[in-house]
């Protein structure tokens, strides 16, 4: 299991610091007053019922949505803590393309559907200056292998792929630049149960091998159990409970979490 003691990393400094992050949609609360730290190598899962603010929070962290108030700081590769919303756009976009990944629920939102699998994986390499076709292709081949896509599919475009394959391709496309932080919104959401299980296995292996920090939004407590060290439970835009995943799921304190865990609530 991956649920190792996170204190092992406690001497490290946080990778991401979220302080009082709030997003309002007019009068409606998207997410309210959220604060937490994420440490290198940590997998954090955000759970909660539909409309509880999971995606809103994730998008605020990934700079896909500007928070109404609060701050989000990220430690760059030079070790400097930077407020994401005070960075220049050029710097932020560079971060997004290299240091981060974002895996969408629907692969079509994260892939270029009209170019080959190889080009989908190679794009980020080319974006950071790779100019040797042979090397780009070798790296793409390697990554397709790591996400269990046969080498001879490298020149097919994702329209010819199954849902599970597309999702694996999206993951490869994100991981090829060795990002330090990956955001995922319901990565197993649209898939059949058996396909979901295989993808989860794959993800678990990759996250462990690469020592990735990950923030995953999910409805599925099995995903939380299998992948995450820590959990945030959201309701009506607030974090109502948080802690080590096993502790929260085995011994939930809040009555809402108890309902969620006992599957009385269908999240």
């Amino acid at each position: 299991m991956l649920t190792t003691d996170t204190h092992a990393q406690s001497e490290d400094l946080p990778l991401l610091q979220v302080s009082s992050t709030t997003k309002l949609y007019g009068d409606r609360i998207g997410c309210k007053d959220i604060s937490f730290d994420l440490y290198p190598g940590e997998v954090l899962v955000i759970v909660g019922e539909s409309g509880s603010g999971k995606t809103t929070l994730l998008n605020c962290l990934a700079t896909r949505l500007t928070p109404t108030s609060g701050s989000v700081n990220y430690r760059n590769r030079k070790g400097q803590m930077r407020n994401l919303y005070e960075m220049s756009e050029a710097e932020r976009r560079m971060l997004i393309r290299t240091d981060w990944g974002f895996v969408h629920q629907h692969p079509a939102d994260g892939l270029r559907m009209t170019v080959s699998a190889g080009a989908n994986v190679g794009e980020r390499l080319m974006a950071v200056g790779a100019r040797h076709y042979g090397n780009i292709r070798d790296t793409a081949t390697d990554w397709l292998g790591r996400v269990e896509i046969a080498e001879d599919r490298i020149d097919d475009d994702p329209r010819a792929f199954s849902g599970g394959m597309r999702q694996r391709l999206q993951i490869a496309r994100n991981l090829v630049t060795s990002p330090r932080l990956v955001f995922m919104d319901e990565p197993t959401g649209g898939l059949d149960v058996s396909v979901q299980a295989r993808l989860l296995d794959l993800l678990r292996g990759l996250v462990a091998d690469l020592g990735l920090s990950v923030i995953i939004v999910t409805h599925d407590l099995a995903v939380a159990r299998l992948l995450s060290h820590r959990i945030l439970v959201m309701r009506h835009g607030h974090v109502i409970e948080s802690g080590l995943t096993d502790q929260v799921l085995d011994d939930p304190q809040e009555s809402y979490t108890q309902l969620l865990v006992s599957s009385i609530l269908q999240p």
Binding site: G118, A119, E123, M126, R137
Partner: peptide
């Protein structure tokens, strides 16, 4: 426009990559 402003030209090579792959 943003890509020009920020010199994000990786996509041009994606197009050339596709040519060579095909």
């Amino acid at each position: 426009r943003k890509m020009h402003a920020l010199e994000e030209y990786g996509l041009m090579h994606v197009k050339l990559y596709e040519d060579i792959a095909k």
